[in-house]
Write a protein that binds this DNA or RNA. Structure first.
Length: 596
RNA sequence: GCGAAUGUAGCACAAUGGAUAGUGUAGUAGCCUCCGAAGCUAUUGAUCCGGGUUCGACUCCCGGCAUUCGCACCA
């Protein structure tokens, strides 16, 4: 019998069964299986230590008892005891071979992984820019992290619904319509619509701001006019609605150009406007369940069990469901959104990917949703706010270019491709121009995506061109290069990488072969970790290490050799390294290359 | 004031309470007549401070310090 996809889970189940025979499970034994330092083995079980401590037993003796009963595992693993009671498991070369033989395609890897979220539906809300504004570098993280999370969830069996929760409603549209009617440059609007809308929005903003305007009285008057435009829009005035629709359409078209480059395609673009007619039910239900109350004319929710959201807090911070002027805010639309995703999409899980500054909002939102759904007896999905750190300039301040504007995402991606193109041309001058351009796209964009994904998302993030666009070290090009080198071997040998001649291959032998095989088997752990914590950097780390193991193998062990046994053995490793690297990179949202 | 996140080598990062804290970059010394040197091998260098819990702490708890951020009608 060959080893299953997730060897750690297999060990965990086996050890639980042994512990059960020993009567340990009833007393809360947990094997605590994890990937081990290669110096000790492939996996380790630490559970004996904590359990023995709790039960006042000798941990080493307990671990020995478990090992004594682990006869069935001896077929695949070398077991050993170490230190105070660690149980180490080292996969035998034959076991490595059986895993490699069984997992021979992206589909089979996926089949192995598709357990964690099988049968579940997850709605992922990410990117979510405001319409009528260009995306800047601050919008990158949500898009890139969100897409990777979507792919991880889908890979582990979920039906994923990608929802772009656009900021397409609110006070800014009154100002935009106001400015459009006065200053629109139709030629500019046709040439670069979003640029023109952004210009108009800034003009509208400036003309209606009494505090900053040199003529406060006039600005106050203009603000009234802009507000009247908003009221017209909200009341469904056909002309206003047509304008609003136009703004949304050109914005989405511009966003889609960015999304295409990042490999993102949303299933829905249900922005705030979509929930405009769904907030009344929120007001009604929160009022009738007595979760919401009047405070200074607004409808708010307090959470008295919470130190900061309690009405008794030093500076009360209520969840503002309806403003005193009767208008809805993002609390109400987000509540309506949570309900819609639960009822309409039948979501088992909802993930919202935004920066950490909205932490309080989502904490209040989730608290409110839990109470509201409980009171109405609605099914409650898993709710996750996936936060990430802010993108700042090198001085830690808000990000600006020299001329004062924010760096546009399009400009960043262009620069990334251009730098990659220079490098491709330098390294591979003989490739045709069109292919070099294509490679530069994959390398440049991939470098930007990977730079964002490879660090733990919760830290802040200092934007630096050179760091973002670095092409050395732990970067996308390093991983893509490893892929290209595997493919090059198959090309050189005249073999089809989709159907490698590896039947009858023997088990890995050299240190580099063994190290590579061991790394490949750990793919499941990387996927499990990244998915469980919704942190793609665990997968990045794994892929970087895998590429390293492959590169070391490549340098040490020649593949295309005369001895057919050695050749088949190494071709098997090459092929499995290829599919795991490509599967992993695709999970991160990167495109892989034949050559570069 | 209350709260959140972050603090690890010169710089940028990793470490699901586990064994000797890993990597990249920069530096140093090697490796292309041999499957792609965008690579490989070796090497220098670090847990903010003070307590505590634990067999074991970068990780958990308490108290400081520093940086960033959030706290009533913008989203």
């Amino acid at each position: 019998m060959s080893l299953p996809f997730d060897v750690a889970a297999h060990l965990d189940a086996s050890l639980r069964s042994i512990a059960d025979e020993l009567g340990l499970m009833a007393r809360g034994f947990d094997p605590e299986v994890r990937v081990a330092d290669p110096a000790h083995g492939d996996f380790q079980a630490n559970g004996a230590l904590a359990f023995a401590k709790r039960e006042k037993q000798n941990p080493r003796a307990l671990a020995q008892q478990i090992v004594d009963r682990a006869g069935t595992l001896q077929a695949d693993f070398e077991l050993s005891l170490a230190g105070p009671g660690f149980i180490n498991f080292r996969l035998k070369p034959t076991a490595l071979l059986s895993w490699l033989v069984a997992h021979d395609s992206e589909q089979h890897l996926q089949a192995g992984a598709a357990r964690a979220h099988a049968g579940q539906t997850w709605v992922v809300d990410y990117s979510s820019p405001n319409t009528a504004k260009q995306m800047h570098v601050g919008h990158l993280r949500s898009a890139v992290i969100g897409e990777a999370i979507c792919r991880l969830l889908a890979f582990t069996g979920a039906t994923v619904i990608r929802d772009n929760h656009l900021g397409d409603w609110g006070t800014q549209f009154g100002k935009l319509i106001y400015a459009y009617q006065r200053w629109v440059d139709e030629a500019a609007l046709a040439a670069d619509p979003i640029e023109e809308l952004e210009r108009l929005y800034k003009l509208g903003q400036a003309a209606t701001d009494p505090e900053k305007s040199p003529e406060p009285v006039k600005a106050a008057h203009e603000l009234e006019i802009a507000r009247a435009e908003l009221v017209k829009l909200q009341n469904g005035d056909p002309q206003s609605v047509a304008l609003w629709k136009k703004f949304s359409d050109v914005s989405l078209a511009a966003f889609q150009q960015i999304y295409d480059r990042l490999g993102i395609r949303f299933d829905h673009n249900l922005g705030e406007s979509f929930y405009n007619d769904k907030v009344d039910r929120v007001y009604r239900e929160l009022t009738e369940t007595r979760l919401a109350e009047d405070s200074a004319g607004a409808l708010v929710v307090f959470h008295d069990e919470h130190p900061r959201f309690s009405r008794n807090a030093e500076r009360p911070n209520p969840f503002m469901v309806r403003k005193a002027d009767g208008a809805s805010g993002y609390a109400s639309t987000d509540l309506a959104t949570a309900l819609y995703r639960t009822e309409h999409f039948r979501a088992d899980g909802i993930v919202v990917v935004t920066d950490f500054r909205q932490g309080d909002h989502f904490e209040q939102l989730f608290l409110t949703v839990k109470k509201w759904f409980a009171a109405k007896n609605y099914r409650l999905p898993e709710l996750h706010h996936v936060t990430f750190g802010a993108v700042t300039a090198e001085d830690g301040k808000a990000l600006k270019t020299r001329d004062g504007g924010v760096i546009k995402l399009k400009a960043l991606l262009d620069e990334a491709e251009e730098r990659a193109y220079v490098l491709v041309t330098e390294k591979s001058p003989d490739l045709p121009e069109a292919e070099r351009r294509d490679i530069a796209r994959a390398v440049g964009i991939g470098a930007v995506q990977y730079a964002d994904l490879c660090q733990n998302r919760s830290s802040n993030y200092v934007f630096a061109w050179d760091k973002m666009l670095s092409l050395d070290g732990n970067t996308a090009p390093y991983l893509l290069y490893a892929v290209a080198r595997v493919r090059s071997i198959f090309r050189k040998a005249g073999l089809d990488p989709a159907a490698p001649p590896v039947a009858g291959a023997s088990a890995p032998e050299t240190p580099q072969e063994l190290a590579l095989a061991r790394k490949l088997v750990q793919f499941a752990d990387a996927v499990r970790l990244a998915t469980a914590q919704l942190r793609p950097h665990f997968l990045c780390l794994y892929l970087f290490e895998l590429a390293g193991a492959y590169s070391a193998f490549y340098a040490a062990d020649k593949v295309i050799v005369d001895d057919p046994a050695v050749r088949a053995r190494r071709l098997l490793l090459c092929h499995r390294a290829l599919i795991v690297l490509e599967t992993g990179l695709h999970l991160l949202g990167l495109r892989t290359l034949e050559r570069m």
